[in-house]
């Protein structure tokens, strides 16, 4: 169901960015009003969500009041209540905590595996590269939902497992991007120079080459977070996502979607929160791409 992330080809290789390049990029990013707004939005959201348990006046998201189940939005409950009489506004905020956490941790897992895998494959090259990329091919060809189901069947459905499962299915594209970057960088003069100075392979790879792949990695990372959030929501739709009493936007949306004809607010508010967040991530990702990729930048002609 997921819409793909940018294919590797669309992220154009950044030549070794000098310090001025980064500040250039920063300047360009700040000029992109939508990206800045998205950044502020995400920052504010992350802060509110992180502090949700300690916010004064916010109802407890797990307190049930069965007699007042499923009431429409009102002054008392801005987003209404769900079937168990829990305050939906509070649940959406707490759900955001989980969803953002899932998105970030899942992305981190994919980042670590993907960068390491791709960098090693690209740098070592030859048979090792072939083998490592064949592993990526195999995993690419496996329907990821099947992998996730099995991971969740094997290991109890804890939040940690969910992070790992989502990260594990997301690192493939990252590995391909990083490998492509490393391949194009490893014969450049600064690498040769480091080698001539007697730096070890590991040092060359992780001190000199990987930092130079940062541009595309940052862009892709920004786009992975919403993808992971979506994946989690998709799993929740199949009943395999975050488990109660925790709720993510995914579980809220999929529960709400099942009662849409009678209690549409149950899907509209979490859906809105989720869509806006994904939108913000996509804006930010676009902005970063424009900023870090001088060729495709908006003010180029």
């Amino acid at each position: 169901m997921s819409i793909g992330i940018a294919p590797p080809g669309s992220v154009v290789a950044a030549p070794r960015p000098a310090r001025s390049l980064w500040s250039d990029a920063w300047r360009r990013l700040r000029r992109n009003r939508m990206a800045v707004a998205a950044g502020w939005f995400l920052g504010a959201l992350a802060l509110t969500a992180a502090l949700a348990p300690w916010l004064p006046g916010l109802a407890d998201p797990t307190t049930q009041d069965l007699a007042k189940g499923a009431t429409a939005p009102s002054l008392q409950h801005a987003f209404g209540t769900d079937e168990l009489g829990r305050d939906l506004f509070s649940r959406v905020l707490h759900g955001g905590r989980i969803s953002l956490l899932v998105g970030l941790v899942g992305t981190l897992v994919s980042l670590i595996i993907g960068v390491t895998w791709g960098a090693i494959a690209g740098y070592v090259g030859g048979k090792v590269d072939d083998l490592m990329m064949r592993v990526v091919d195999v995993l690419y060809a496996l329907p990821y939902i099947f992998l996730v189901i099995l991971l969740l069947v094997f290991f109890s459905k804890s939040l940690v497992m969910l992070f790992v499962a989502l990260g594990l299915v997301q690192w493939l594209t990252m590995a391909r991007i990083v490998r492509g970057q490393v391949l194009s960088l490893k014969h450049q003069t600064f690498v040769e120079a480091a080698r001539a100075l007697g730096a070890s392979d590991a040092a060359i790879l992780f001190r000199h080459i990987v930092p130079n792949t940062l541009g595309p990695v940052i862009v892709y990372t920004t786009l992975t977070v919403p993808a992971v959030i979506l994946q989690e929501a998709f799993l929740s739709f199949l009943g395999l996502g975050v488990q109660p009493p925790n709720a993510s936007w995914g579980t809220l949306v999929s529960d709400g979607a099942r009662a849409i004809a009678l209690f549409p607010w149950l899907v509209v508010f979490p859906g809105l929160a989720m869509s806006l967040t994904l939108l913000a991530f996509n804006f930010l990702g676009d902005g970063l791409r424009d900023a870090l990729d001088p060729k495709g930048r908006r003010d180029s002609h």
Binding site: M1, A233, V253, A257, V267, G271, M274, L278, L279
Partner: peptide, 21 residues
């Protein structure tokens, strides 16, 4: 961007609600 950001399991039920029900 909106199209990429609205999951199809939100969109599907909304379409049903409006156009079918």
């Amino acid at each position: 961007l909106a199209g990429v950001s609205v999951p199809n399991f939100v969109l599907g039920p909304l379409l049903v609600l409006v156009f079918s029900l």
